[in-house]
Simulated assay, not measured.
Amino acid sequence: MEKHLILFDIDGTLLNDDMRISKKTIDIVSSLQKKGHLFYIASGRLLSSARSYSEMLGKNIGTIAANGSVYTLGNEIVKNRLKDEAVSAIFEACKIYPKLQLRLFSTDTAYGMGGMLQAFMNLASNTKFKKIKSKADLNRLDPFITNGILCANDLSVLADAKEFLKDAPSLCLSSSSEHNIELIPSGRSKAAALKDVSQKYGIKPQNTIAFGNGENDLPMLIESGHGVAMANSPRHVLEQADVVTKSNNEDGIYAFLSKYFAEDLES
């Protein structure tokens, strides 16, 4: 079988609800690597966090992080910056809607305004945090910001903020849950990174497989030759995927790969 590029979202896809990667998934990835296939993690997380799961999955697993703003090509790290005009619009939204909680990310650090949400507590073991109160604070630190996220418990606040930011320059909006807005540099996405990686390694578009479960995975599922949604995905993701596999708690990745690569695994 020709070489394939296979990508996994992390939360709700590669990880089960206990935040673990199943042994079946680890074993089949190892077997398919020996057949020459290429694997990548594709996440909205910081590079430092996403890479830790690449290492858990196995050796020589590539990483797409920050919703496609950062990705690895062997030992090289490709980074895209969130432009200053986009960052300014984000801080303006936070002034207008003070219930928003903001995190802006470099490859290893979260710069935050507002209380720390549980979602970020889960990353604390491999992510540095620095509190900021304004854009001036951020400018003094002068980090290379790759992406960000706005969170709120009040969905109406998020809806208003999304409307405010929808035409902001150099900024693309997405979401990985109903309680957040993902902030991404224009032109970047998991799909854009998938395209960059597949072209770099000479892998045909029809030989790419992407697994995901969220809105921010949709461009990647659509761009790939085989977009596979987990059964635990929202309805609009399920409807736009090429294939629906079992849930993240039912070894959905293994279920699809073992069937798709059955002949390759037997040879």
Rank of each mutant, 00 (worst) to 15 (best):
K135R: 11
A124G: 08
K133V: 07
D108W: 00
S176N: 09
K190P: 04
T107G: 02
D84T: 13
A152H: 00
K166Q: 15
Y97N: 06
S175G: 08
G115T: 10
T107V: 13
G148I: 00
I181P: 02
S106M: 05
D142M: 01
S156P: 01
G114V: 06
S170N: 14
M113T: 05
K83H: 14
F120W: 12
N147P: 04
N122C: 09
I132M: 02
V157K: 03
Q118K: 13
L183F: 06
R188L: 13
G112W: 02
T107N: 11
K133F: 10
R103K: 14
E85M: 10
F164C: 04
K130S: 09
A119V: 14
I181Y: 04
D160L: 10
G112K: 03
D160V: 02
F105A: 03
F129P: 00
F91P: 03
I184Y: 00
T127L: 14
Y97E: 10
K131Y: 08
K190F: 05
I149L: 10
G148E: 01
V78F: 08
L194I: 08
S177Q: 09
S186C: 10
K135Q: 12
D108P: 01
K131L: 11
I184M: 07
M116T: 11
T146N: 15
P98T: 13
Q101T: 12
L138T: 01
A136N: 10
E92M: 11
N153H: 13
G115I: 09
A119M: 13
L150Q: 02
G148S: 04
L171Y: 05
L138E: 05
N75A: 09
I145H: 00
A89P: 05
N180E: 07
N122A: 15
I77P: 04
Y111Q: 03
F120K: 03
Y111D: 03
L117K: 09
E182H: 02
I77K: 07
Q118T: 12
D154P: 07
K128Q: 11
M113W: 03
S186Y: 11
